[in-house]
Design a protein around this nucleic acid. Structure first.
Lengths: 118, 118
DNA sequence: CGGGATCCAGGGCGATACTG
DNA sequence: CAGTATCGCCCTGGATCCCG
């Protein structure tokens, strides 16, 4: 990867856009351990409404990161799973998780310091 | 880092939130090579208004990732630079850049395929 | 040049209710 | 259970103007 000319490169922004909303990364992460049904996802994630979850999954689907599989019987059981492409995104997301685990406290401290200063 | 109990962990979401807007990652990236003045940042980034750049820098400042340094003379020259904490974030961002460089085409292809299917 | 003040449009996100 | 339809808030992001 070239270290310069990054910003004008649409590819980089494309990747940033994939993470530029509240739930994309969270849902991808929630799918890391295998296919899941919406109910499972919701309880695993917590705090996400059915509607927003669906919207997020549609977005991820649109970008080729997730695929949807309906049950073959008529029951309303559906599964979502990461595509191979989506799975490759776990590595960078992992990097962020590790970062948060290590530096999360510092960020929160900075936030409180900034608030205190006001 | 624990691989489970990630989603309920506020720390992880905190990190995701740092990337959950359009410009945070881009501006951080633009600062990677050293302190810069807003004008420089704007031309390096491209497509960002003065107002939005300022807002973004304030956000990053609030989170302790960037610091602002006014010139000592009265001229209106200001520099922004990454804090040590902010610099640690470059590694995960790098991971995303590398990912985009490698898989960007696949994402765009998936998008086009999704559009064609409609 | 830096950056505030406005005004404005779009969309993310939430709560709720409803259909199959 | 999965998903859609509404309604509405609020924030991001963009354009413009103006001040030190």
């Amino acid at each position: 990867m070239p270290t310069d000319a990054f910003l004008a490169d649409c590819r980089a922004r494309l990747a940033f856009d994939l993470l530029s909303n509240t739930w994309n990364a969270v849902v991808l992460w929630a799918l890391r351990d295998g296919p899941s049904r919406p109910v499972e996802l919701r309880e695993r994630i917590g705090g996400i409404s059915s509607k927003v979850l669906t919207e997020t999954l549609r977005r991820l689907q649109f970008n080729g990161l997730v695929e949807r599989q309906a049950a073959r019987d008529a029951s309303s059981r559906v599964e979502y799973r990461l595509t191979p492409l989506g799975r490759t995104l776990l590595t960078p997301i992992d990097a962020f998780g590790a970062w948060a685990f290590e530096y999360g406290d510092e960020v929160m401290a900075a936030q409180e310091a900034a608030c205190a200063g006001r």
